[in-house]
Design a protein around this nucleic acid. Structure first.
Lengths: 320, 320
DNA sequence: ATGAAAGCGCTAACAT
DNA sequence: ATGTTAGCGCTTTCAT
């Protein structure tokens, strides 16, 4: 079922079908109507591969995320899909498992699919910058957990987000405020900055990666040292939830014995027990800005990552 | 950067490049090496659109899911991606929001992309069957929440899953066992069947859709009527978590005051408080079987949905 | 306002 | 073992 069939049925040439469909040239109203009828009758669907081949543009975008075990990641994918679809793009979502060699392979696949742009989400490396640049693809970074030289794109100001989270905890009067998360993360520096600005000695750091297992393990340590702690700032909703289980198992009350503020603002934070006060990352805006990048309408310095602000969402875990 | 460039650099015709790449014809070892060198030197990447146009097969699969606010859905997407990638397919994931008109549009898009198959996940309607059949695409249903005439594919035996969950609750000695979930779901019948088989009067049904808001609202009702309840079976991990918050807010202890078994076996059930005993849905096997369908190697009755068994994963919420 | 025709990059006969 | 070539469905000059 091709354009040719439609053209024949409508009694025109295939060019006219294109004109009608794409508005590429003026078409007489009667002709256009006949063409549309023929399309309907035949149930014709344009062949996107042929179009992509001819046009050199696939109207396809690639997104590489580390995984989908995290509601925040899933939400981010969804936000990208929504933004992309609004612009007429479909999106190919791929999972790297945080493995940079894998990212390289996936970039190959995306290049082969002739995607019009690639978004590399969350996990980014210098190696990835090299691969992506070499691929010749248009690309941008989406909400990277760390700034990498040579990467352009959009993210959230993690340091500032951690600062407002910690400031809120200080505002409650907590003086001994710990940190749960990876110690190389930008969030530690925001946490420490808030504490130091208030003249308070930083509490302990509970090192943990962004996995539920690790969050749980860290939570056990937090519970064990709860006597020296008023509160903790936890780097993500997902690990906060896992830590929460350990903290409850330790017989502690949140926020009574220990207050918590976390990060992400995903649905995981809303119906946990207690509901988590968290720093919401504006995923919708993030997705839109990232597309602006890919589609070349972001007037921005090369090699720079635009930082959006997170917003404190107050619920119960902080003691409010 | 095309096949032609590679061929020239390697001093062969473009056909030989194809032969080398696809093993479509014997190639002299020396020639093959030269071709591979040329490919590497030029950083050549085959054009998937051209290939799809020529071959009439895109090596692309479409998956339509209702949303991604649910970790179970996200996990399912991931499982499909893994299974598909293992077979050399990329997957286009699309979100319907559970809206059947939307599903129709997405099917159009997928048809246009010349996907080799479509998986319609979770939410399925007779209307969808019509649209999909009319599209001429190869399709199957993936883990539908209800059986629809004309739909082929693979799912989980929800009734049986609910039965083993409820039987476990009965085994604990609970006699008043409620149900939380949509009352039109197959899980109610499994729940009721287990109860009736044990000669126990079915407990109350707390009607609720599969959203966190609804789960929370239902949880409030459960808490309010906890005096007449020993346990509840809850239709999904996601709503169980939301209900858990309401139940805790009601000052109840789980499983002390009220035992819970839920459904899905997603990561959301593992690090909740308490950890949820749940019926695990074998998403990996589901994805693989669904692909078998699409790729035509499933020797199965047309119009039939193969049912896989869920497996009880015992954690703390049941009282074990 | 419409038609004819070339060509996007690839594969698969068919030739050699 | 390798080269030639037609054509997949589409868009786009360039004619008319």
């Amino acid at each position: 079922m091709t354009r040719r069939d439609v053209a024949r049925l409508a009694g025109v040439s295939d060019a006219v079908v294109t004109y009608t469909l794409n508005g590429a040239a003026p078409v007489a109203v009667g002709t256009a109507a006949r063409v549309r009828d023929a399309i309907r009758v035949l149930g014709y669907t344009p062949n996107a591969s042929a179009r992509a081949l001819r046009m050199g543009t696939s109207k396809l975008l690639g997104v590489i995320v580390p995984d989908a075990t995290n509601l925040f990641t899933a939400d981010l994918c969804r936000a990208v899909d929504r933004a992309a679809r609004a612009e007429g793009y479909d999106v190919l979502t791929m999972y790297s498992g945080g493995d940079h060699a894998r990212i390289g392979e996936l970039v190959q696949v995306l290049a082969s699919r002739q995607v019009d742009g690639v978004l590399l989400a969350l996990v980014v490396d210098e190696q990835d910058v090299t691969v992506l640049d070499a691929s010749g693809l248009v690309w941008a970074v989406l909400n990277p957990t760390e700034a990498v030289p040579g990467a352009r794109g959009v993210g959230v100001d993690l340091e500032e987000g951690a600062r407002i989270a910690t400031e809120h905890l200080l505002w409650h009067g907590y003086r001994s405020v710990g940190f749960v998360g990876p110690s190389k993360d930008a969030r530690v520096v925001g946490w420490r900055a808030a504490l130091e600005a208030a003249g308070v000695e930083p509490g302990p750091i509970f090192e943990c990666d962004f996995t539920r297992e690790e969050g749980y393990r860290a939570g056990i340590e937090v519970a064990a040292r709860s006597h020296e702690l008023d509160a903790v700032f936890i780097g993500s909703d997902m690990i906060a939830n896992a830590a929460l289980r350990a903290i409850h198992e330790g017989g502690l009350d949140v926020p009574g014995d220990l207050a918590i503020v976390s990060f992400d603002g995903s649905a995981e934070a809303e119906y946990s027990w207690p509901a988590l006060t968290t720093v919401y990352q504006p995923i919708g805006a993030l997705a839109v800005r990232a597309l602006d990048h890919l589609l070349g309408r972001q007037p921005q310095q090369p090699g720079t990552i635009a930082l959006l602000r997170g917003e404190l969402v107050i619920r119960s875990s902080c003691g409010c």
